[in-house]
């Protein structure tokens, strides 16, 4: 099945009910979204989309925002349970320690900024590391800022293009974002990061194994209340890219980077690392990074 077919077969409503560009928010015509879903045979998805309030012919922005906010809070709960912050830190900290000068980590598509705020709260990347969350969705970013303020956390959130920031990132990261892209878009995504002058990237996403769809269904049923969160959670697992697609996208887009896989699918029990990263690094950093990683380096592979 092609990327585009897979995206049509497993649509995520959070992509469809709001439309943010780098600079503005566009109204979303509810009937169009519902009709498209129905035409593609997604009657349940269409029914779910229809539960969102409408204002005239458009989705009511406040209601769509509330649904997304509740879904992202439940998503954060899942990230807390799988201890995502620790997982990212153990791979990112060795690189941060190797790099000279001030380090800036940019979390692309940060949503509520859980990871950014977690780094700031725990200082797990070192006290001098600057962490910035970037997202198009202003509602989620406002919530992220409010949460950071509530706990007096030293981190920043920026609305807009992650690759056109005033201060370039040293390392780009993301969690659960890259399955939103087709493989062609992925290559552009990696290219933009290399062009921005970053030393590397760590993009975490669901590992697509044979049991992933069942596991995603079970966990979203057991842990989430919001119907949209349950729906999108399962579909995101079904849309997750294979390792080969990710590696090829790094090679095609960031031609100056070396792609690395940590816990490549099939190499370890999937339950040990449900969110596994594709890593891109400048070639001169790879050997030193492996050494810095210590025993974990045995789980790293250079495809």
């Amino acid at each position: 099945m092609s990327d585009r077919d897979r995206r049509r077969r497993y649509p995520e409503l959070s992509d469809l009910i709001v439309d943010f560009t780098a600079t503005e928010r566009l109204p979303v015509r509810a009937a169009d979204v519902i009709a498209t879903l129905e035409a593609d045979g997604h009657r349940r998805s269409a029914k779910l989309a229809a539960t969102i309030r409408q204002r005239g012919e458009f989705f009511d922005e406040a209601d769509a925002d509330a649904v997304l906010l509740r879904s992202h809070l439940e998503l954060q709960r899942l990230a807390e349970e799988i201890q995502h912050g620790q997982r990212v830190t153990r791979l990112l900290r060795p690189l941060v320690d190797m790099l000279d000068g001030p380090v800036t980590i940019v979390d692309v598509g940060c949503g509520l900024g859980y990871l950014v705020r977690w780094f700031a709260a725990t200082r797990s990347l070192g006290a001098d590391t600057r962490v910035i969350g970037v997202d198009f969705n202003r509602t989620l970013l406002d919530a992220a800022r409010a949460l950071a303020d509530a706990e007096q956390l030293d981190c920043e959130f920026v609305a807009g293009d992650a690759f056109a920031l005033d201060q370039a990132a040293t390392v780009y990261i993301s969690s659960g974002v890259i399955h939103h892209f087709t493989s062609d878009d992925l290559a552009d995504f990696f290219a933009a990061q290399e062009r921005a002058g970053a030393s590397g990237c760590f993009h975490f996403d669901v590992a697509p194994t044979a049991i992933t769809p069942f596991g995603a269904w079970l966990f979203h049923r057991a842990r989430m209340r919001e119907p949209l969160a349950r729906h999108d959670g399962v579909h995101s697992a079904l849309r997750a890219h294979d390792d080969d697609v990710l590696v090829d996208a790094v090679r095609a887009g960031a031609t100056g980077w070396t792609p690395l896989l940590f816990d490549a699918v099939g190499r370890r029990m999937a339950v040990l690392n449900v969110m596994r990263p594709i890593i891109g690094l400048r070639p001169e950093l790879v050997d030193a990074y492996e050494r810095e990683l210590g025993p974990l380096a045995t789980r790293l592979s250079r495809p």
Binding site: A30, K47, A50, T51, I52, R53, Q54, A62, D63, D65, A66, V67, L69, R70, L73, A143, A146, L147, A150, R225, E226, P227
Partner: peptide, 17 residues
């Protein structure tokens, strides 16, 4: 209890057009 606040869901949503 919800931080940041978002309105509570309608537990029995119905179709609205």
């Amino acid at each position: 209890t919800m931080i940041p606040f978002a309105p509570a869901p309608r537990r029995f949503p119905h179709r609205r057009h």
